[in-house]
Design a protein around this nucleic acid. Structure first.
Length: 244
DNA sequence: TTTAATGT
C-alpha cells in the first residue's frame, strides 16, 4: 500500500512537471520565487509578505479568453492561502483614498466565473490612486485585450516597482511608486514594456512610458520569460515592439 | 460599457 501511494505520488509529480506550469501562466518562466507563489485559473502571482502586495502577476491570454465574459462580481476577498499575518484586507484600503487596484485585471480574467472571482482576491490588489487605476492603467489593460484579439495569444506580467522609500496604508500595505507591465507575443517573438509613474495618468500618455523588458528587469530585479531560448530572449527584451 | 472603483 505504501509503495502504491508513493508510485501514485511520483506519477502525479511527473505529470504536473510535464504539464503546463500553472495553467500556462508560467510557461515562459517564473519572474522570481517571491515569498509565496499563488496559482489561479486566470493568473499566477508572486506575493511579497513584507509589502502585502504581489511582486508580479503573470498570465497567458488568448483571443478566446479575453472575449469570454462573466459579470463582474466586485466581491473583494481576503486570500486565505496566505499566512494570517501577511494578508491584506479591504479595511487596509478603506477610506485611504486608494483604490484596491487589480494587478491581473478583472476584465481580462472574466472568462469563467471562478477566474473572475479569483481576480478579486486581495493578493491580486495594490493600492492605486483612482486617477491612475481608472485612467491610464485601465487604458493599458484595454489595449492589452485589443492586442490579444489582434495577435491571438499573449503572455503578460505586471506588478509594482519598489524603490524602498514607500509609505503604507492600513496595517502595512505598501503604496508602489511606479508600476510595470511587460507583454510577449510568443508567435511573432515580440515584446513591449511599460513603466508607469503612480500618479493620475491618461491613456493618451501611455506611448511616452514605453520601454524595454531589459529596463524593467534592471529596475525590478525580476527575470521575465527566462524559459525562452536565450538568443530569442536577449533579442526581444532589448527592443520595444513597434506595434503601438 | 462586456471598465474599475468608492461609499451609502
Amino acid at each position: 500500500m505504501k509503495h502504491l501511494l508513493i508510485a501514485i505520488f511520483s506519477i502525479t509529480l511527473s505529470l504536473s512537471a510535464s504539464a503546463a506550469v500553472c495553467n500556462q501562466h508560467l510557461d515562459k518562466g517564473t519572474p522570481n520565487d517571491s515569498d509565496q507563489i499563488l496559482c489561479r485559473d486566470g493568473y499566477a502571482a508572486g506575493y511579497n509578505y513584507q509589502n502585502k502586495v504581489s511582486n508580479w502577476v503573470s498570465y497567458h491570454i488568448t483571443k478566446e479568453s479575453v472575449n469570454a465574459f462573466y459579470k463582474r462580481s466586485n466581491s473583494f476577498r481576503i486570500d486565505q492561502d496566505l499566512p494570517d499575518a501577511f494578508r491584506a484586507t479591504s479595511s487596509d484600503y478603506s477610506k485611504t483614498g486608494y483604490d484596491r487596484g487589480h494587478l491581473a485585471p478583472s476584465g481580462t480574467m472574466d472568462f469563467s466565473q471562478v477566474s473572475m472571482q479569483e481576480s478579486f482576491l486581495m493578493s491580486n490588489m495594490a493600492p492605486q490612486l483612482p486617477g491612475f487605476n481608472r485612467g491610464g492603467w485601465k487604458g493599458l489593460e484595454e489595449k492589452v485585450r485589443e492586442w490579444a484579439n489582434t495577435y491571438s495569444e499573449l503572455y503578460v506580467v505586471s506588478g509594482p516597482i519598489w524603490d524602498g522609500n514607500e509609505t503604507y496604508i492600513g496595517n502595512g500595505v505598501y503604496i508602489p511608486n511606479r508600476f510595470y507591465k511587460v507583454i510577449l507575443d510568443p508567435n511573432y517573438n515580440d515584446a513591449i514594456a511599460f513603466i508607469l509613474p503612480h500618479r493620475k495618468i491618461s491613456s493618451s500618455e501611455l506611448p511616452s512610458f514605453i520601454t524595454t523588458v531589459d529596463a524593467v528587469e534592471e529596475i525590478t530585479q525580476l527575470d521575465f520569460f527566462s524559459d525562452l531560448p536565450d538568443a530569442v530572449e536577449n533579442e526581444i527584451e532589448a527592443q520595444a515592439w513597434d506595434m503601438w
